[in-house]
């Protein structure tokens, strides 16, 4: 499979505390990659490196290369604003913008991205994005209601629609279901599968069953190191590393 992201020797520190050590990983185009591991293993820190969300964190430092289509996004010359338009992100807690309607929540990225767009083309993109996020049918009659008036699961799909509206190539999801009920979780998981036909998706999860259900490849992180990465089927049936086996059999974590 063609790699869209290549991580080469990524290490990261918060102040003097090292949180990632020499991570090496390839992410295939239009696939779902899960990053799993116990709390505090650096999985969130890792995916937040992929869209440079740490840039504003005081004391954060990282070394190594992250190649997006062959270009090192760690470089000073890369504008994080442009990078984030190509690499979207969905967070653990659904976080629609307060004081904005459902429509505005999806449209705001387009409007503030500085491209001159007509009202009609914005409306079209909003509808398309809500369709892709499997939310359109539920909200089409009240697009002017506050985004925060939706249920938790709907809010998370709204956040996915918001991310899709700026037409990224890669979608990062940081434990997107951990604050949701099982029904909403099932919807999001189904959505992830559908979206993977057009997008490259990297999902952080500490839920092994979820990783098994949704992913093509799984990366297992432990204490800031990538222990093992392989096809989903292989990792859950025949892991090569003893620690992976211990984790998936519930020996720790």
């Amino acid at each position: 499979m063609e790699s869209v992201l290549e991580v080469k020797g990524l290490s990261a520190w918060f102040g003097g505390h090292q949180v990632l050590t020499d991570i090496r990983m390839d992410v295939g185009r239009n696939s779902v990659t899960s990053v799993m591991g116990p709390s505090g293993c650096g999985k969130s820190t890792f995916i937040r490196c992929l869209n440079r969300m740490h840039d504003l964190t005081p004391g954060f430092r990282s070394t190594g290369e992250i190649l997006l289509d062959g270009v090192n996004i760690q470089s000073e010359r890369i504008d994080p604003v442009n990078l984030r338009r190509r690499v979207g992100m969905v967070f653990q807690q659904p976080n629609p913008f307060p004081r904005m309607s459902v429509f505005e929540n999806v449209a705001v990225g387009l409007k503030l991205n500085g491209k001159k767009l007509t009202r009609a083309s914005i409306a079209e993109t909003v509808e398309k994005s809500l369709h892709m996020a499997a939310l359109w049918n539920e909200v089409k009659d009240h697009l002017d209601r506050p985004g925060l008036s939706l249920s938790g699961g709907q809010q998370q799909r709204l956040c996915i629609a918001r991310a899709l509206a700026v037409e990224p190539e890669i979608l990062l999801m940081d434990e997107p279901c951990s604050a949701l009920d099982p029904v909403s979780t099932a919807k999001i998981e189904e959505l992830i599968e559908d979206l993977s036909e057009r997008y490259t998706i990297v999902v952080v999860t500490h839920n092994m069953q979820q990783a098994a259900r949704i992913s093509d490849s799984v990366a297992f992180f432990l204490l800031g190191e990538l222990i093992e990465m392989d096809k989903s089927g292989k990792i859950f049936t025949n892991p090569s590393d003893k620690r992976t086996e211990e984790y998936i059999t519930g020996r720790f974590g």
Partner: peptide, 27 residues
């Protein structure tokens, strides 16, 4: 204004000053 509002806006590729002026201040 919660920090996640800033993060959500920055993650959409919105510049920092626009994030502050159009989203955080609005909130």
């Amino acid at each position: 204004v919660p920090h996640h509002v800033h993060e959500a806006a920055l993650a959409l590729g919105i510049e920092r000053w626009k994030t502050i002026l159009y989203i955080v201040v609005r909130t």
